[in-house]
């Protein structure tokens, strides 16, 4: 499986497009609030509206996200990791 060595950046500074979430560096309540809505390692997200707060599309869900929280989210361009999201085996290895 592809690893995440290429062009990792922070979601807060990203342009519109598809990304794969590499890591969520938040703790406590912020971590839970992000992850339970699907902003967690391995998930593909689309940044559809820039700004603070920004708008993300995750599958069929739209999520509004403040820049402050977006700073905790590391992403890689989805093309580098596609096709397909990270398999569960990779996450659970």
């Amino acid at each position: 499986m592809a690893s995440v060595q290429t062009s990792i950046s922070v979601l807060a500074g990203a342009r519109k497009g598809f990304y794969q979430c590499v890591d969520v560096d938040a703790s406590g309540q912020n971590a839970i609030r992000l992850k339970r809505l699907g902003i967690c390692a391995g998930r593909v997200l689309e940044l559809v509206g820039q700004g603070d707060p920004m708008v993300l599309q995750l599958g069929n869900s739209r999520i509004g996200l403040s820049r402050q929280l977006a700073n905790f989210v590391s992403i890689a361009p989805a093309e580098a990791l596609l096709p397909g999201p990270v398999a569960q085996d990779a996450l659970c290895s």
């Binding site: 969520v24 992850k35 339970r36 699907g38 967690c40 390692a41 391995g42 998930r43 599958g59 999201p85 398999a87 569960q88 996450l91 659970c92 290895s93």
Partner: peptide
């Protein structure tokens, strides 16, 4: 079960 990574991620993957 047996997952070492992010449990949320595993659940989303399962739901997918």
């Amino acid at each position: 079960a047996g997952c070492q990574g992010c449990p949320f991620s595993a659940r989303f993957q399962w739901a997918d």
